[in-house]
Design a protein around this nucleic acid. Structure first.
Lengths: 189, 189
DNA sequence: GTCTATAAGAAGATAGAC
DNA sequence: GTCTATCTTCTTATAGAC
């Protein structure tokens, strides 16, 4: 595939990624995507065979992005406590976007889980990514496999709840207060 | 308004309430609603002026339902700890529906918060209802006004996070485990 | 690989007979 | 208040010239 084709394709994916987050999957039309990406209507079908296919590419892009984020946290400190704290700090750092649009991963799964369970199966991989990474950190803290997994899921759930709350009330301060509570809980473990 | 008209209207509202929960607001069509309610297509416009108008009635019905639920919890025990425990127990009791469709209140707010912020303002009243009721219970436990409100929001956030987690993984056991953790947290307060 | 035109269907909403 | 027929708009998707 040519370099220009690659760029057009990634323009489409990145525009769709932002729009799916801001307006939801069903709330985003092809017109929205082509306008944002600066490509022509029917042209999308040269790169993707359907809207669902675009979502698959968007999820893959999210996975790449979050893998890079996690790698950055690992590079920043070898201490598992620092790495877990980075997760809680992300909630506070993302407060503006969370208040406006909710969690990119959680809100996508919530939408797809309603009536597109086939697609939600793919989106769930984003939860799996964080669950496995967090479980590995709890393992480094001496927890056994099952307990580490339980703590990882609990931590993800806490973050999801904070994101829902902050989105419903569109309140960045609330997000930061709850993120601080989460840091405290992690510090006491 | 006649008795028959009242029944037709409430049939539409209750069908829409169930469908909006199971398929989402945008994912539910007029065809879905009239089929479930057993009324005729254009007939809906005799009772509601738009789809958004139906949602308003659905939210009002939810408010009525949850006010009755809270009144039942108050009638069951005068102890604020029992009443708070009833909230955590609801999460476990609703595990099957939560695993399939998520939280009726949370998923509705998450969907509307994306691109229908006007409607989300109305749906937020459902969060307010629980927040104020829970804050009153924490007040009964001796917490001052601001702290009681913060604890109430925290508790709602915890429940929302559990619901998202259980919905994403469609796992009733996970919902019950996390509900037990929530009960423990309440008992230690 | 780029761009225009349009098909095919589903959506919300309306008109009007009964 | 019930029921049928239809309008308009928007959606995803396709055909085909360049």
């Amino acid at each position: 595939m040519s370099s220009k084709g690659e760029k057009t394709r990634s323009d489409i994916v990145n525009s769709a990624k932002a729009l799916f987050y801001e307006r939801g999957y069903d709330g985003t039309s092809f017109t929205d995507i082509v306008s944002a990406a600066g490509v022509f209507r029917g042209n999308i079908y040269h790169y993707f065979k359907s809207k669902d296919d675009i979502l698959g590419a968007v999820i893959a892009q999210h996975l790449d992005d979050y893998r890079a984020l996690l790698a950055g946290w690992e590079a920043a400190s070898p201490d598992p406590r620092d790495r877990l704290a980075a997760f809680a700090d992300m909630v506070a750092a993302q407060a503006p976007a969370l208040a406006r649009f909710g969690c990119p991963i959680g809100s996508l799964n919530t939408e797809l889980g309603k009536d597109r369970r086939d697609l939600q199966g793919a989106a769930r991989a984003l939860f799996d990514l964080f669950r496995d990474w967090l479980a590995a950190r709890f393992g480094e803290l001496g927890r056994d496999r099952e307990e580490a997994r339980g703590l990882a899921l609990h931590l993800i759930g806490r973050a999801q709840g904070i994101a829902v709350l902050g989105h419903v009330y569109q309140d960045q301060d609330l997000l930061r207060q709850e993120a601080a509570r989460l840091r405290d809980w992690l510090a006491r473990l």
